[in-house]
Simulated assay, not measured.
Amino acid sequence: MKDEPAVLSEGLRLFFPAAAIHGALWPVVWVVLYAFDLPFSGNVPTSQWHAHEMIFGTYGMALAGFLTSAVPEWTDTPRLRGKPLLILLGLWMPGRLAGLIGADWMIAPAGLADAAFLAFLTVSIALPMIRRRNRNHASFAFWALAMLGLEIAIRLGWLLGDFELSARLLHGALVIFVVLMALSVTRINIVVINHALDPSGDTRPYRPHPGRRNLAGALAALYALVMMALPDSQAPAFLALAAAAAFFDRQAEWFIGTALFRAEVLALAGANFFSGLGLAMLGVAGLGAPFAPATGLHLLSMGALGLAVLAVFTIAGLRHTGHELILPARSGLAFALMLCAALVRTLPEMGLGSWLIGPHYALASLLWAGAFLAWLSGFLPMLLAPNRQG
């Protein structure tokens, strides 16, 4: 459409900035302005509002941007554009308002909106795969459907006052996002590493090890399932350690010489490393080590998913706006700030820099916000402008 603004021509152009703005502002408001005391908080623990917003708010919108742009490429079908994108954005927003103020009376209506958002997203990516009989990427539709089920179950847990159940479900939802990250990195890494090794594109020297493609994600998914079903067993702890080992084994994919030191390659490698570290921390905590599970969860949410989301924002943002895979300086700054945010949030709780305990919450939230704002300042002009390739 000639009069259609560029921002409505593809999902990532609208959804990546929305996710970045949400990710930058909400934690700062909670930690710095509210001091963890949400203005309308009731029975639902504020920590669960926070976790839900990061998972279903920031990462949910990032997932929508990635899938609504990637699935049309994978299936060679028309992409969502215009009004359907605005509908998805509109369905996503009520939940974000509820999470910002912690309003228990908004649990049901906001939950319906979030469920509709995830249902719309699942259908929009599943239909092209069905039409094209494309099974290679069907796992994304399956896990999007799983996120829909978890969203409904979490809201029901809140309404029923079963906050122990909702905490486990939020934990499981975060790990499912790690699974989605592993699936995404498997696909993106082929392009990124081959470009790093041969920017001309004449050769494709990198091929991933077939055994590593899905093992880490599969073990992480099994850990999430058993953790939610058998919370009093030690089986989840051993499965977390097994999944961590699989992620650490995948680290060998990044043994590519000096090309490793390109920012986009390091970001993907770092996301994979933090996945292993976070799962390992959850495993040893479950076996009695003196670490809080929240530390492992923040290694996953800030280190693994934070770096992975910024890497996807950067790589897909460049490729889908007609730019070469040459990262602007602000991308490197965003990655560095995200890494610092993850370390500041978790290291003091691991006995390193314990003098920061207390102030580390606010400092980590500001570094986290700075990472998203650095990316946004560099990429928003690209996303608002027409594609350079027409």
Rank of each mutant, 00 (worst) to 15 (best):
M227C: 04
A292Y: 14
L305A: 10
A173F: 07
W368V: 04
L174V: 06
N214S: 15
P205W: 12
T186G: 15
R168S: 05
D249G: 08
A167M: 09
V44S: 08
A196L: 02
S166K: 04
M181T: 13
L121T: 00
A280Y: 01
I190F: 15
G172S: 06
T122D: 06
L356Q: 01
M382I: 06
L88T: 06
H209C: 04
V175M: 04
A108I: 13
P109H: 07
A221E: 08
E349M: 06
L305R: 11
W375V: 11
R345F: 09
L352D: 01
L239C: 08
I188N: 09
G358N: 05
A244P: 05
H298P: 03
A18N: 06
G286E: 01
L118S: 05
S139T: 13
F261W: 14
L222H: 02
V309P: 05
L14K: 03
N194D: 10
G60P: 05
V31G: 00
G161A: 07
S200W: 12
H171F: 09
R131T: 04
F248G: 12
P78T: 05
F117Y: 05
L282A: 01
T346Y: 03
A364E: 01
G257H: 11
E151P: 01
A244H: 09
G288Y: 07
E4F: 09
N387F: 06
F66S: 13
F16E: 12
P208D: 09
T58I: 07
A146S: 09
Q234R: 14
S9M: 11
G358R: 02
D162R: 02
I193Q: 10
S47W: 15
F255E: 13
V265H: 00
N272I: 05
G82E: 02
P39H: 06
A6E: 01
A245P: 11
G23E: 00
